[in-house]
């Protein structure tokens, strides 16, 4: 059992296990802090900067990312100070300039009272939260995609902007993307993610296409089970 610490969030006294982040502690106490790059299954990354909060500890006040900062005894957290709201408003306006349509972004904008971004809308779509990259590395374990470029030219990419040789077509990146930016479809036994085609395995019994062949090969490799173990779909197995 982890040691418990006592902190206040917006004046409410809360106790949370040491080592949890402000965002986790707030969530457990039903206090909402907007965020986009955080995912409880992934290592905190602290890149979107929506979850900024103002903290006071040992007489010092500063602004930190709630998804990374770990709670300590006596910490005072304020979720909605003017400085913090200004950061959030700027962040959401900047993200709307990349993607002004997605409901997830629109919802946060509404909450902050932001109707439109004052910046030119470029409709890039991806907000570079990096959930896909981290999921691929940490959950799937293949690191098929990563970041390329820097600054405003940063993008999510496979090596050399080409077919991702390590991708197992599992679709986890598609699933975690908070703005549904990664398109995936299945047609005639082929799964297509963005523009890359992956053949599907047909179930030996029922004939249904049930999983990408590369994903089953990956399962076989990681579990040590023979490949024919994965020839049937889960229903027929």
């Amino acid at each position: 059992m982890a040691e418990m610490v006592t902190l206040t969030i917006d004046g409410r006294t809360i106790s949370a296990p040491a080592g949890t982040t402000i965002l986790e502690a707030a969530k457990d106490a039903n206090i909402y802090i907007p965020n986009l790059c955080n995912n409880e299954e992934l290592t905190p990354y602290g890149s979107c900067r929506l979850c900024m909060v103002e903290i006071t500890h040992k007489g010092r006040t500063r602004i930190v990312a709630a998804c990374i900062y770990e709670v300590v005894d006596g910490l005072e957290v304020n979720v909605n100070t003017e400085r913090v709201l200004n950061v959030r408003k700027l962040v959401i306006e900047l993200l709307l300039a990349r993607n002004n349509e997605h409901p997830a972004l629109r919802k946060i904008a509404d909450e902050l009272g932001v109707k439109e971004t004052r910046f030119p809308v470029e409709k890039k779509g991806c907000i570079l939260c990096g959930q896909c990259v981290r999921t691929c590395r940490e959950v799937v374990g293949v690191s098929a995609i990563g970041f390329s470029g820097r600054g405003i030219t940063r993008r999510i990419a496979a090596p050399f902007m080409d077919f991702p040789p390590d991708c197992i077509a599992c679709g986890s990146c598609v699933y975690v993307c908070p703005v549904n930016f990664i398109p995936m479809r299945e047609e005639n036994g082929v799964r297509t993610i963005i523009r890359f085609d992956f053949p599907m395995q047909q179930c030996k019994k029922c004939g249904k296409y049930f999983a990408p062949k590369k994903q089953l090969e990956y399962f076989s490799k990681t579990t040590g089970l023979p490949l024919d173990h994965f020839e049937n779909c889960i229903d027929c197995r």
């Binding site: 979107c48 900067r49 900047l94 300039a97 907000i127 990096g130 600054g151 940063r154």
Partner: peptide, 21 residues
């Protein structure tokens, strides 16, 4: 700074770019 920003966090990546524009 826009060109040297790593691009990880939104305010620096997007904010400095928009400010320069």
């Amino acid at each position: 700074l826009e060109e040297e920003s790593c691009g990880k966090c939104t305010p620096c990546r997007e904010g400095v770019y928009q400010m320069r524009m």
